[in-house]
Structure formats: structure tokens, C-alpha cells
């Protein structure tokens, strides 16, 4: 995998598509994220930041989910180019 393409969801810019490769979270939060579709291999779109910069809304498995910085920093993936 091209290392330069690897970013966390938190680093994504609006409109970026990121293919999840790893989730470095444990416990209930990890299970909750999995349930919502943040599974390895899923493609996540960065939608927008809240007015105060945190949380950030993401589009995953056809729904919009907001995550805080603490969590979105720990979800990594590969930047997928726009078609």
C-alpha cells in the first residue's frame, strides 16, 4: 500500500473518500463503530465539520454519522481518488 495515501478519518478533507484499513479502538466504542458500518474495507466520505470544528460528520454505509476527534483520529484508511 502506498504509505503517503494513508490518513486518519480526522485528517480527511471535505469530500475525501477514505477506505478504512484499521480501527485502533477497543471496547464498546469499537463495537458501536463496527455496527454503524465503520468496518475495514468500507469506504467513508468526509461530509463536514461542526461549526466549532469538532465533531466531524462522515458518510458510511449510506448514513451520516458524526464522530469526535478522539475517535476519528484512531480510524485509519487509504485515500481513494475520485472517479
Amino acid at each position: 500500500m502506498d504509505e503517503s495515501n494513508k490518513i486518519s478519518l480526522f485528517q480527511g478533507k471535505k469530500g475525501n473518500l477514505i477506505k478504512i484499513s484499521s480501527i485502533s479502538l477497543e471496547g464498546v466504542m469499537r463495537r458501536r463503530l463496527l455496527d454503524l458500518g465503520f468496518v475495514p474495507g468500507a469506504i467513508v466520505e468526509v461530509i463536514k465539520k461542526s461549526p466549532l470544528g469538532d465533531p466531524i460528520a462522515f458518510r458510511v454505509s449510506q448514513t451520516t454519522i458524526a464522530l469526535r476527534k478522539e475517535e476519528s483520529m484512531k480510524i485509519e484508511g487509504e485515500l481513494v481518488n475520485h472517479e
Binding site: 455496527d35 454503524l36 458500518g37 458510511v60 454505509s61 449510506q62 448514513t63
Partner: peptide, 9 residues
């Protein structure tokens, strides 16, 4: 129907 992927889970 508008977000079947997650719902089907």
C-alpha cells in the same frame, strides 16, 4: 429504503 446497506446488517 434510503440506507439499505446498514439496515440489512
Amino acid at each position: 429504503a434510503t440506507s439499505l446497506e446498514r439496515n440489512l446488517n
